[in-house]
């Protein structure tokens, strides 16, 4: 019980920290690409060591043997996807409240990063399902929600591509992102309810071996750094693109013309 509370507090703290960090940090990252690169390198190092740990040091699982090891990639990827997309929701709401262009770039960056991790999560989930349950796909709530989420945020990025006016693009994609974010829990509930009538799947929810726990946490942090790297890089691209797209305010001519 206490562990649950601690975990919830830690995750919330990380989320809030990410929010603040992105808001202030991404702008810095535009001028200092080396800062962005540092996160990438850190993330890569952590990921490589994390995968090594997960592949060779952590023990095999009681039911699934060695097959389960892919979950050291699958679970952090899913976590990062949800982090990124929940941040996207906050950025979108913030943009609608006050047309701060930083928020729009952050929303775009977090959506793309979330999509990348989401694809990773769904693919690894599918690869995992094959030897475990014999099928490439199961209709369990998590996988289904993740798949709908991917299609949805693919749509978000399509919308951004197809709207030329930057101001409309920001507003409309924010509106859509709010719909999508509200909708995701609904997808979860409805699929869960639907599946509860048919059958329930089993996933390794309880991880007791400390080596497994450490491996998971290590990989989670690795992916967190990679998430930061992705978002900051994508933010940079978005900001620089916007600079070419939106002209700065026009100079006032010295000669005024009053009618």
């Amino acid at each position: 019980m206490v562990t649950q509370i601690i975990i919830t507090v830690v995750v919330t703290a990380i989320w809030v920290g990410l929010l603040a960090f992105f808001y202030w940090g991404c702008e810095r990252g535009v001028e200092k690409p080396r800062l962005v690169g540092t996160f990438g390198i850190l993330g890569l190092l952590l990921a490589v060591s994390g995968e090594y740990y997960g592949l060779f040091v952590a023990p095999p699982e009681s039911a699934m043997g060695d097959v389960y090891r892919i979950f050291y990639v699958h679970v952090p990827a899913d976590w990062m996807a949800f982090m990124a997309l929940s941040l996207n929701f906050v950025f979108s709401v913030a943009f609608l409240f006050k047309k701060n262009w930083r928020m729009d770039s952050l929303a775009e960056a977090s959506a793309e990063a979330g999509l990348v991790f989401g694809i990773m999560g769904v693919c690894t989930g599918s690869i995992w399902a094959r030897p475990t349950w014999g099928t490439w796909w199961t209709w369990d709530p998590r996988l289904t929600t993740a798949a709908v989420l991917l299609i949805a945020y693919g749509g978000y990025l399509a919308l951004r591509r197809f709207v030329d006016d930057p101001e409309k693009r920001g507003v409309w994609s924010a509106v859509w992102a709010i719909f999508a974010a509200v909708d995701l829990p609904l997808v979860w509930f409805s699929v869960k309810f639907w599946r509860s009538i048919h059958q329930t799947q089993s996933t390794p929810e309880t991880i007791r071996d400390p080596r497994m726990q450490w491996s998971l946490r290590w990989n989670a942090f690795a992916f967190l750094f990679l998430l930061i790297f992705f978002v900051m890089s994508r933010y940079r691209i978005s900001r620089l693109a916007r600079e070419t797209e939106m002209a700065p305010p026009p100079e006032a001519l010295p000669v005024g013309g009053h009618a």
Partner: peptide
């Protein structure tokens, strides 16, 4: 309404709408 003002509006509407309508 959003799609009607964007490019590729006929394709965009189902792309935007279908994932939202799953539940």
């Amino acid at each position: 309404s959003i799609a009607s003002n964007a490019r590729a509006r006929d394709v965009l509407l189902p792309v935007l709408l279908f994932p939202l309508l799953v539940p």
